[in-house]
Design a protein around this nucleic acid. Structure first.
Length: 691
DNA sequence: GTGCCTCGAGTTCC
DNA sequence: CTCGAGGCAC
């Protein structure tokens, strides 16, 4: 019995490997045997052994990698697509720092490696963890796999107590070709490109497979540190190199934007001979003190930018244009393409944005393709924006068939037949069917159960569609989710007898739903799916009103779009008339209101926790933030101040206690000085509330 | 009114 | 990831 043999051989090899560090078979051989085992198991599931290597070797108990929160966020970079964008970047930095055009401002320029970012944490010189970027806040723990990468030192000499080194894991062209040859020999699917191969290899649950895949690592950044690595980016890179990390040889210190562009060109010329994929050049302000002054925008640093190479393009036939209906009713045209490889990935769908884009106009009516509209049957140019999202960019008129007709954008919703209305000044047409439209209803439900909303385990997009179309156990609106278990019971527990369901999966789902009856107010507000009200506005409103009762009463009281409650809503920083109207109206629409009431009757909405602010140094004080805040966003600053019992106001008056002024503060700081109000820097303010 | 900046909503493929 | 739009500062 081959499975038995495989289990024995792999089990022994694994034991040897983990226990003694003395492998008995080569990594490639191990890899091959494991694949063989998986193939047989896939073909004959009934033969799967309880001691199957597929669910024990080296793998953690969980199917997934543990989540790890980054102590210092891993941000992405802003993009530059032209020389002009780079000059603007230089200008913007100078303006922010108050430097003149003639002051010296150095930048580093380095190739942007096309791989995956990884954060390595060293404590007392020892590698303790490796975490992927994830969403920037939280990544996955891939420490075991990172240990298999030769370029990553397991220990450092002379490093500070805590040092997080960040860089890029990548696979060389040569190794990628080898790996794919091996894959094909084994009848395994080859990888589309080195980046996917590297990502797949790093995320192997079995570190042995990672070891058999030759990965490399370039260090170029850092996270938490107990001691700085140097005074400049250049010095820090040299230091990382001295500590034993590979750093990129093409990193150059530039004194002028012209030098940066020259280096960009030089790197682009060498691109084909580097032996690994790069997708642009990264420029960073060299002086780390200046980097600190520049700080961050919400998702990107102000002191760095990625100058991207022109995106790879491909040509293919546009076979059809289909219309998708989103949760807000937006009708989005999608191009169905004859499959074509773009930048190493086969693309068969691409976005066409909206009606105007197809016609060749932008939102202001200006020509984006000199009047060349896009028609079904056309030979089109496709690229992947940001190397990710496929888009149709242009059309070759010389290949257009005589019979090709201009695309006529639908005037009714293709899903429900309701009129599709495009409002004046709006760039998208929307289905007017509301919840009558099945597409809108399903998309709204998907939004309701999504990660930032109710996040119900076992009830994802697919299940929502399953239940939406069900007759006995229909979920047509959010409240139905919470009555599901009751309805199933009166139905004599039918769910567990359905195809694909069993006793365990049914009771797991019911338990997961029960768990979410208790829901934080901000999540509930976001989950309602009110137009213009996303995740952050949900938190903004929750923090302001504190409880569902207060929030609901305020929405009712503001119905007429006037009065104290309406003014209060508009006074919230970040809420303007458009959002306020959308909010109040959604509570005012009878059907919608009834659905919300049915839902909240099933829930236990948690109030926003009000921190005890007695003893807070700023309790009852009125604060005004002005200028650019460097260490937090305005919304964060406001939320924190309010959490500590302070009142945040937008304008300076005699009642103002503190003005917190960042760089670029103008009239408000002046007025504060005139009125004799104390002006604090951001640091002083943070120090004060830290007490 | 203009010019950031942030957020929301839409999108593909693995 | 990108576009458009909302909101705020000037």
């Amino acid at each position: 019995m081959e499975l038995e043999r495989l289990a024995r051989v792999l089990g022994q090899a694994n034991e040897d490997y983990h226990a003694s560090d003395a492998p008995t078979i080569s990594d490639a051989e191990y890899d091959r045997l494991k694949q063989r085992n998986a193939e047989i198991e896939a073909a004959f599931p009934a033969l799967k052994r309880p001691d199957s290597p597929s669910h024990q070797i080296g793998a953690p108990v969980s199917e997934k990698f543990a989540k790890v929160k980054h102590r210092v966020r891993m941000l992405s970079l802003g993009n530059a697509f032209s020389d002009e964008d780079v000059l603007d970047f230089d200008k913007g930095v100078r303006r922010y720092l108050g430097l003149s055009d003639t002051d010296v401002l150095q930048f580093t320029a380095e190739p942007k490696i096309d791989g995956l970012s990884l954060s390595l944490r060293y404590e007392a010189g020892a590698l303790v963890s490796a975490t992927t970027r994830g969403d920037g806040e939280t990544g996955e723990n891939v420490t075991q796999n990172a240990r298999m990468i030769a370029d990553i030192p397991k220990s450092l000499n002379g490093a500070s107590e805590v040092l997080e080194v960040r860089g890029e894991v990548y696979m060389s062209h040569a190794d990628f070709a080898d790996l794919n040859t091996r894959q094909e020999k084994r009848d395994e699917k080859p990888f589309a490109n080195p980046r996917n191969a590297a990502a797949g290899s790093l995320r192997q649950l079995d570190a042995r497979i990672t070891k058999s895949r030759p990965l490399h690592f370039f260090a170029y950044a850092w996270g938490e540190m107990s001691e700085p690595l140097g005074k400049t980016q250049t010095a820090a890179i040299v230091r990382l190199n001295n500590l034993g990390f590979s750093t990129n040889d093409l990193t150059k210190t530039c004194r002028t934007p012209a030098e940066m562009l020259q280096h960009y060109q030089s790197i682009e010329e060498q691109r084909a001979t580097l032996g690994y994929d790069i997708d642009g050049v990264v420029y960073k302000v060299d002086d780390l003190a200046l980097q600190a002054r520049l700080g961050f925008r919400s998702t990107t640093p102000r002191w760095a930018i990625a100058h991207k190479f022109p995106a790879e393009i491909a040509h293919t036939t546009l076979e059809a244009i289909e219309i998708q209906v989103g949760r807000t009713g937006a009708l989005s045209p999608v191009a169905r393409l004859k499959p074509v490889t773009v930048g190493g990935v086969v693309v068969s769908n691409a976005t066409l944005h909206n009606e105007d884009y197809i016609a060749g106009r932008d939102s202001k009516g200006a020509a984006i393709r000199e009047g060349r509209d896009i028609r079904v049957g056309d030979w089109v140019e496709v690229y992947r924006a940001g190397d990710v999202i496929p888009k149709v960019r242009d059309v070759d008129l010389s290949k257009r068939k005589a019979e090709a007709q201009p695309y006529v954008f639908p005037t009714v919703c293709p899903e429900c037949g309701s009129p599709a209305i495009r409002e004046e000044g709006d760039s998208v047409a929307r289905c007017s069917g509301g919840l009558i439209c099945p597409a809108q209803a399903v998309e709204k439900l998907k939004h309701f159960v999504s990660r930032a909303a109710f996040d119900i385990e076992g009830l994802g997009a697919k299940q929502v569609e399953f239940f939406y179309g069900d007759t006995d156990l229909a979920i047509r609106e959010p409240a139905d989710i919470f009555t599901l278990a009751r309805r199933d019971e009166t139905n004599l527990g039918k769910l567990k007898n359905r195809d694909g369901w069993g006793e365990t999966s049914a009771s797991n789902l019911f338990a997961a739903i029960e768990e979410k009856r208790e829901i934080p107010l901000n999540r509930l507000i976001f989950a309602l799916g009110i137009r213009h009200v996303g995740e952050s506005t949900g938190s903004l409103l929750a923090n302001h009103y504190g409880s569902w009762t207060k929030f609901g009463l305020a929405m009712d009281a503001a119905q007429a779009h006037e009065g104290v409650e309406w003014d209060e809503l508009l006074s919230i920083d970040g809420v303007g008339s458009v959002m306020a109207t959308a909010l109040v109206d959604s509570f005012h629409t009878p059907d919608n209101r009834a659905a919300i009431d049915r839902l909240t009757a099933e829930l236990d909405v948690q109030d926003v926790e009000v921190a005890d602010t007695s003893g807070s140094p700023v309790a009852g004080k009125t604060v005004v933030f002005t200028g650019t805040l460097e260490q937090m966003t305005r919304a964060e600053a406001k939320a924190r101040a309010e959490a500590m019992g302070a009142k945040v106001s937008g304008s300076v008056s005699k009642k103002t206690d503190y003005v917190v002024a960042g760089p670029g503060a103008g009239s408000k700081a002046k007025k504060a000085a005139e009125l004799g109000v104390s002006i604090l820097s951001e640091e002083e303010w943070l120090a004060m509330i830290a007490q």
